[in-house]
Write a protein that binds this DNA or RNA. Sequence first.
DNA 1: ACCTTTCTCAACTGTTCGGTTGAACAAAGG
DNA 2: CCTTTGTTCAACCGAACAGTTGAGAAAGGT
Lengths: 118, 118
Amino acid sequence: MTDQLSRVFAALADPTRRDMVARLTVADATVGDLAAPYDVSLQAVSKHLKVLEEAGLVTRSRDAQRRPVHLEAEVFDLMTKWIERYQRQAEERFTRLDAVLASLQDKDIPTAEEGTAS
Amino acid sequence: MTDQLSRVFAALADPTRRDMVARLTVADATVGDLAAPYDVSLQAVSKHLKVLEEAGLVTRSRDAQRRPVHLEAEVFDLMTKWIERYQRQAEERFTRLDAVLASLQDKDIPTAEEGTAS
DNA sequence: ACCTTTCTCAACTGTTCGGTTGAACAAAGG
DNA sequence: CCTTTGTTCAACCGAACAGTTGAGAAAGGT
């Protein structure tokens, strides 16, 4: 899973990580802040953050001992673009199918119209 | 990973599965059709399809020995909704931050405004 | 009836994932 | 210094994942 798109999808496949992202849209937070609501160790949360970071979804700076986490929302565009592209393509295919069905209603051809076999 | 949203994200985290989805926007296909371009066993592809199916991304019917796979593009909406919601929220926060910074330039208040702790 | 095609199920393998604990590092602050 | 706070690293564990092979089901074609 080398490519970023895969990493982003994988990162958001986990409910805890999605929740973290959701909370980061409100404000930056430290690891401790983020860990608070969950019933897991701080280390586990730290690992989740590493996943989000490697997906490019968050960045981290430094403030004394703290490592504030900041959401990089632009990465969403990567997904949105992929999804929209194929969503559009699927819709187009759908309307194309409608056209075929409509033309079939005019004529009276019960046979296949596919150009598969030679 | 019980919820559908997690399953959809996880399903699309794999490049091979994303490619299958992409190809299914063009036309329905059999397992064999789908497997052809990849250098893995048919069984592996069959497993990938099971993942896509359990995520609600595809459905399968029957045509003699064949099991044609059909894309259910509506499921994309699930993701799109989630993404857009937090994308919007992140943007709003951004503009809100701008406002705060602007007001800070007028006054001179360096203290926090968050009502988190009891 | 047989054989072929298409696909799935079952069992096994190596790898990744999400979690744990314990130790250690980084940066202030007595 | 030594302690406290915040975070990460390392090793480990069980479960899930992505792949394999081998057997077999499902549905026709001849």
